[in-house]
């Protein structure tokens, strides 16, 4: 059944590195406007999944269909596809020899061939949104990690992508900078941008996600709304994973009763 709402269909996706399977016949459908948060233990294949979706990793089997176009084919022009699938990396990866504005304009002007004035207008809009228009002339090394990551997000958005992929975008940031980046993504979610987000920020995952995709050993173990996943995970594997994020607080009672443990909520 063809559903026009389906923007991305992944079927039996297989990927292995040196014979070690990382993605194991993974199947997933994403609807337009949906926000998927992919979580799972490290090495479970979540980053690899994102990298397969925009062709940074060649796949070994299965099918990816994006807007009716089969991407897992020899004829795929990845540079075309990537103009429509934006990606933001863990380590920002801005181009150090370009300033903020040049970083943002490179794609729209050089790749998409848009008019510079038009691209500039869009860059101004997005930079204002993330509070960095004043820093447009700065070079990446003059920015904090959080600022760099916000610029990297704007750089991807400037291409008008239909899907955005976020690969652990706050994993290298100091805690106080995580928030400013997550707020930007949260706002994009409110506007209905289709996003697939890989993150270890559980509170954020819960706030932003329409669906939580829990991956372990290259397969989707759970695919459920955030409330269900966090309150009432269906599998043992997910429950054990979530326990990693729980701490038992030690509450010192009055003399003689001894310490007792109380779970601390996220």
């Amino acid at each position: 059944m063809v559903n026009s709402q389906e923007i991305l269909k992944i079927k039996d996706l297989e990927k292995s590195f040196d014979g070690v399977p990382v993605l194991n016949r993974l199947t997933l459908t994403v609807k337009r406007g949906e926000v998927l948060v992919v979580i799972g233990p490290s090495g479970c294949g979540k980053s690899t999944l994102l990298r397969c979706l925009n062709g940074l990793e060649p796949v070994n089997g299965g099918q990816i269909v994006f807007e009716g176009q089969i991407l897992t084919s020899f004829q795929t022009s990845w540079s075309r596809v990537r103009q429509r699938i934006g990606m933001v990396f863990q380590n920002y990866e801005l181009f150090p020899h370009f300033n903020v504005l040049e970083n943002i304009l490179l794609g729209p002007v050089r790749v998409q061939g848009r008019k510079k004035s038009e691209a500039l207008e869009k860059a101004e809009f997005w930079l204002n949104r993330v509070g960095l228009w004043d820093r447009r002339e700065s070079f990446p090394r003059q920015l904090s990690g959080g600022q760099k990551q916000r610029v990297a997000i704007v750089r991807a958005l400037a291409m008008d992508p239909e899907i955005m992929l976020f690969d652990e975008v706050t994993a290298s940031l100091d805690p106080e900078m995580v928030r400013e980046v997550l707020d930007v993504i949260l706002n994009l979610a409110k506007e209905g941008l289709t996003m697939i987000i890989v993150t270890h920020e559980m509170a954020f995952a819960r706030a932003v996600a329409d669906r939580i995709i829990f991956i372990d050993q290259g397969v989707i173990v759970e695919d459920s709304p955030p409330e269900t996943f966090f309150e009432n995970p269906a599998t043992d594997r997910a429950r054990r994973f979530l326990n990693i994020f729980q701490f038992d607080g030690v509450q010192r009672g009055s003399r003689g009763t001894g310490p007792k443990t109380v779970p601390v909520r996220l």
């Binding site: 940074l56 075309r80 990537r82 934006g86 990396f89 990866e93 181009f95 490179l106 794609g107 050089r110």
Partner: peptide
């Protein structure tokens, strides 16, 4: 990653070399 982030923006191999790799 510099190559990858260039590719992720839709730059082809030639453009990645020209705009990203070569100047650096």
């Amino acid at each position: 990653h510099q190559w990858e982030s260039g590719r992720a923006l839709g730059l082809n191999e030639m453009q990645v070399s020209l705009y990203v790799v070569f100047p650096q």
